[in-house]
């Protein structure tokens, strides 16, 4: 199999994920889109690991999975907090980050 078929699939997933992160109003859906991005990265890691016949790719994919789990945990906690404070998880309303 060509290496590129995996890499292109990953690139497609990544870009769809980026699109989701940019357009979704709901914080929950943004988190899901981030999962798409992370999975794209994982495919790349494992594919390159397979290319060089190195186990390092798999190992780091596992690390990424662990980190992603942590990220979802923290992310959901933040979303929950946001919901508790604002009764909404609409990111359009979260605009305190301006000068």
């Amino acid at each position: 199999m060509l290496l590129n078929q995996f890499l292109l699939l990953a690139a497609a997933l990544f870009c769809i994920g980026v699109y989701g992160v940019l357009v979704r109003r709901s914080a929950m859906l943004v988190l899901m889109s981030i999962e798409l991005i992370l999975n794209a990265v994982n495919i790349n890691l494992v594919a390159f690991g397979a290319l060089t016949d190195d186990v390092g790719g798999s190992v780091f994919a596992l690390f990424t999975i662990a980190v992603a789990a942590a990220e979802v945990g923290i992310g959901l906690a933040i979303v929950l907090l946001m919901y508790r404070n604002r009764r909404s998880i609409d990111l359009a309303q979260v605009d305190l980050l301006k000068g």
Partner: peptide, 14 residues
């Protein structure tokens, strides 16, 4: 450009 919305900043970054 200075909306305070994270997604805007993210879009510009990407």
């Amino acid at each position: 450009i200075n909306s305070g919305q994270v997604q805007n900043y993210a879009a510009l970054m990407f």
